[in-house]
Design a protein around this nucleic acid. Sequence first.
DNA 1: GATTTCCATGCAACCGGTTGCATGTCAAGT
DNA 2: ACTTGACATGCAACCGGTTGCATGGAAATC
Lengths: 337, 337
Amino acid sequence: MIKRTKGVTISQVADAAGVARSSVSRAFTRPDMLSPETVERILRAAETLGYVPNHTARALSTGRHGNIGLIVPDIANPFFPPLIQAAQTEADRSDFCIFLGNTAENPKQEDKLVGRFAGQVEGLVLASSRLSDERIRAHATQLPLVLINRDIEGIPRVLIDSSAGVRQAVEHLANLGHRKIAYVSGPAASWSNKQRRSAIRAGATARGMELSIIPTPSPTYQAGREAVDAVLQTGASAVVAFDDLTAQGILTGLAERHIVVPRDFSIIGCDDVLGAVTFPALTSVSNHSVDVGRIAISMLLDILRSRNVADVRYALDTKLVVRDTTADAPSQGLQLG
Amino acid sequence: MIKRTKGVTISQVADAAGVARSSVSRAFTRPDMLSPETVERILRAAETLGYVPNHTARALSTGRHGNIGLIVPDIANPFFPPLIQAAQTEADRSDFCIFLGNTAENPKQEDKLVGRFAGQVEGLVLASSRLSDERIRAHATQLPLVLINRDIEGIPRVLIDSSAGVRQAVEHLANLGHRKIAYVSGPAASWSNKQRRSAIRAGATARGMELSIIPTPSPTYQAGREAVDAVLQTGASAVVAFDDLTAQGILTGLAERHIVVPRDFSIIGCDDVLGAVTFPALTSVSNHSVDVGRIAISMLLDILRSRNVADVRYALDTKLVVRDTTADAPSQGLQLG
DNA sequence: GATTTCCATGCAACCGGTTGCATGTCAAGT
DNA sequence: ACTTGACATGCAACCGGTTGCATGGAAATC
């Protein structure tokens, strides 16, 4: 059985070193204020006693706890882990810890998490928030906020601007001879979804293509798989999916119906996080998701340091990466069955 | 531009309600100690002022911050997100927040994270730790610890006992006529890896099969893909991979060499987190990874509540799920080409 | 009516640090 | 030798809550 040691306080170190508590504090936070010998003596005493500064106490008196929160709608969506990892690495560089929150695509849960985090983080990054603009604005009055993939004026934000990539995707399909296409959409509350949908609509209109929109409840493998019937009913020969996970589900749904991709049907994802991992390798709209996480955190840290909030809007570009799920439109239409 | 409101303190509420600070505190923490009217009046005042208790201050005086840490080696490995999500949900039920740490498979980083978390969490869950037993024991003296997939006596742990499932996997391959198999192993510091390796060794010996072990630097898609040459050189006709991600990489590596699975080669993963998502659908050793997350957290919360640490060892069973990546051994050996 | 009991509330110390200001010391400046 | 200043350190208040103990008034008991 393991027994626990309890914390050594600053007072004990002070006694051991024969100095005041404040000197011990300074030995750790502003050693230049003390004579080198004193610092040395204090550090030695601290070392001997196994002193570790109490984070909570420090946070209380300074108001800075060195934590930032990151809230995502679904950790299991492969778009997020690399982003989270990058965020963590960036935070780490400045000795910040990350609180991670998963909302399960649920605005209620998101609201609750923000509230719970608010007290113990210096700032918050909301990735792909499903909250209303009003709620987000309200939260922003409580603590520094940075948004990912959400465009609200006055709140610093990092956006993946899919329009260029999606436009390329539509062009690509048009060049392959596809005339009827479908967009399998993402969550209604998703800014990315709105943006991708309008980009594809604009592209389709420009090329005189017929476009159908298929709704899904959430961007998941399962939702993609279940959307396949609806997609096929539109008579489309190609589909653009809200994200790679959905696209992967569609891929499976098509395989289950013995529809061969890309011979019989073309498919394009978004985010390019599964690209090489699916079979066939997925053509997808690529977007430096890793950068997004890093940039959002570094932006937040800047705000925390400078204490003033500029209205930053950081948009990252996207481009189509062609792999093996797109090909010429089948000449005499799709043979169902 | 959004301006920030600053915190309302307990004193302001006390003044507004015409009571002492202690009464305000009690109105929130032990309302039964106060008369209902007083409670009512205080709550109304708090509501009006928009008072929210300061988490940090409370943590300082009570020593309980309602946070627990969860450290994983690689968020991007699909084994972890469901586990993390389950952990979060379970923590949430008891109003605890989760600190997430990602070590990138790096023991140094893991050590650092534990240290940084130690001050601000009540307890810690280490999933698939890559630390040495000594380090883990040392940390356990500092704060309550629960381990996932690490078997150290005296420290509460939740284990996925792969031996049954792996044994079934070997049986399955044996029954399909495979005589030479390979195990593509995971990280050297991984307990699961050791366990799986011995299980497969035992199984192979029992059935008189020839077994080769292929090392990999880390359990990733890329590592699996790069292990394929080594696997093929062993002359094996089937492989068991340390986890599904590695298996998926192997699947791709085989496809790149025009080796058709399962006709020419059989493959089995572990964890069963990608099962239905790969092509062909992966045969895998299934293990309720979601339960693991939930159980670990609930165990930790029990410890925090009871303040005494029992030596719990919770082992979860596994079983083989057969899908489409295993079939009869090719009769005249594999045609390399 | 006096005494005891109980309950609601206030007082003040405490959690473990940080920090503005005061103090004391010693060397440099004149 | 006396002032001045720089520098090292200590004192004490403060961050925003919690909690053991004291107090005072009302209800219960005799």
